[in-house]
Design a protein around this nucleic acid. Structure first.
Lengths: 352, 352
DNA sequence: TTGAAAGCGTTACCAG
DNA sequence: CTGGTAACGCTTTCAA
């Protein structure tokens, strides 16, 4: 039995020093560079060398050290993904898809989660210290923060976020267009008295949706639209509906919620708390097209983000930029899928 | 204007070589070790030194390289988190909480997402190459895989997974107990004809839940329980309910679904497809206590995993093991929170 | 095809 | 408190 304290990678214990390419080289009777070559893509190594090295490596439980490799190659093969609470809650598949797609390119995801979108500052420092090869952010950056990242030479893709007056790569769903469609169809079907339920104030997505809805209403000559603030939760939607009723003294024709969860809360409130029929007594629309929106009891009229295509686009964009940093910026805007549920009265099946 | 190609970290361009501690040292007129010390915790540096170094660092946009630090300190300050599709879908808050909690300890999360729990093998190789300080897995490992990780000297915490005959750190919800409670209460309220809807076959959690339910039914003398396989989706729950009806030729007294999403699908099927009242015509219970289960239209009787406490426990356990690898294994089992909704007939409000 | 040696950007140890 | 120097484990010339 080997008693040397420096012996590496014995398959029995595991508390010893981990095997390095030097250990493997020594055991195989070859040079360290040879070991390195065997573990690379376009290596030049004879079959015999390969066999000897691999045998020694297996014996010692050797695995190349990705940290050391990253240091010398200047490529960590990691990208940072920054999400806020909301990103994950309402699109749980986002992270999994992103991670799997990066993985196919040999790239790992270093995850950063924010309580609120404002907390990016310190986080950014850590992101940059890890020398990630790129960054996908589903949280808002200030222009200054964005420049900090650019100066560090790290390609960025904004996910569902945009920048006034700054050239940046971005992938997003056209929330404005989606809201305009919803409002347009509701108006066309005769709805005149609207109410809006927004998401959290620090949500860029909610802001864009609300703005889109208000713009379209303005165009259609609908004024005095009560706006109630929610926090994206169904409970807040239910409470918001009560606020609207208090505010108006009667039911509006339509309630436009900034996401599906709140729309569902509104439907619950309308039915349970006010005995209103949906959509007979009031039409309610949401946004996102998440799973629960399709449950039979709700069947929310909404707009679905094409998350699969969006994550695919984000990954492709970032990988391209990592390979060639000089590629100029691009914005990819995806239209949402229009879902006509039964929670709103629309004029007819034909599209508009 | 500085034209030297080797100049680092100019705040204007960013395509240059990034500033190193040597660059900072040179500009500040001090040694490189001094710079290193200024950027550490228990540094010994005079105030004047600090100021000069920080000034130079800011000027150059210097940031310590976490990769290089990891190489020399033998601590990457990263932990790997392995999830499967399902983990994220039904407990979206899991990842965010885990990441935030690790972050409080200065530890970053390297994320690995599996399509199916069986895909761990290659993934593991990557995990180990990154020299993570620890690993939390919400996907099943084979005993062999587990030993591989242990031999690499990486502490592991199993999340909602267990091992036959192996000593391992784990944090889990007591699914068995939860199912036993559900079955017990249903039986007590007079239900005799049961049906079970399982999750995907490769889900360890589903298996445990189903086993717990069947055991309790067996004890209570209930035999011939039809078992239908779902995939955790509400659509599969809806389809499963139809299968049960076909199978039995009539409605069972109670349907026990392996998660809430399928329970909701069953409720939709019962009401919409068969005109059954829930819980009048059939009782339906789920598991998880996810958001949609609380929607007014469903109000599912279920058992909620205390995710917050569980992630907290997992983080604490792993951090302890990273600090002191010789701490012996521990298993932490959390009872689920019992939620009496209106989707099942229970005998009385008093507990059992 | 192979081996020697020079880094990559830190931290850590040791004198001064 | 400060500076010099040796690692850390790898990739990458450059000769042989």
């Amino acid at each position: 039995m080997n008693k040397s304290a420096k012996t590496a990678g014995s398959s029995e214990a595991g508390q010893r020093r981990r095997a390095t390419s030097y250990d493997v080289a020594e055991l195989a009777g070859v040079s360290q560079s040879a070991v390195s070559r065997v573990f690379q893509q376009g290596a030049s190594a004879s079959k015999e060398m390969r066999d000897r090295v691999m045998a020694a490596a297996n014996k010692l439980g050797y695995r190349p050290n990705a940290i050391a490799r990253g240091l010398i190659t200047q490529r960590s093969n990691m990208v940072a993904v920054v999400i806020s609470q909301q990103t994950n809650l309402y699109y749980p598949e986002f992270l999994v898809q992103l991670t799997q797609r990066f993985s196919e390119h040999g790239i790992r995801v270093l995850l950063f989660a924010l309580e609120h979108e404002g907390d990016i500052e310190q986080m950014l420092e850590h992101v940059l210290q890890y020398r990630v090869d790129g960054l996908v952010t589903a949280a808002m950056l200030t222009p200054h923060q964005f420049r900090t990242i650019e100066n560090a030479g790290v390609p960025v893709v904004l996910y569902n976020r945009t920048f006034p007056d700054t050239v940046a790569n971005s992938v997003r769903c056209d929330h404005t267009e989606g809201e305009r469609w919803l409002i347009g169809k509701l108006h066309e079907a005769g709805h005149r008295r609207f109410a809006i339920v927004t998401g959290p104030e620090d949500s860029a997505v909610s802001t864009e949706r609300t703005r889109g809805a208000l713009e379209r209403l303005e165009e259609l000559g609908v004024r005095e639209v009560p706006i109630v603030h929610g926090d994206y939760s169904s409970a807040s939607g239910r409470a918001a509906f009560a606020d609207i009723m208090d505010n108006l003294g009667h039911a509006p024709d339509a309630v436009v919620a900034a996401n599906d969860a709140m729309a569902i809360g509104c439907i619950d409130a309308a039915r349970e708390d006010y005995g209103l029929d949906v959509p007979g007594g009031v039409s309610i629309v949401g946004f996102d097209g998440v799973g629960p929106a399709r449950f039979a009891a709700y069947d929310v009229t909404t707009v679905r983000q094409p998350v699969g295509r969006m994550t695919e686009a984000a990954v492709a964009m970032l990988i391209d930029r990592i390979g060639n940093p000089s590629i100029s910026a691009e914005q990819r805007v995806f239209s949402g899928e229009r879902i006509r549920g039964s929670s709103a009265r629309f004029k007819e099946p034909g599209d508009g």
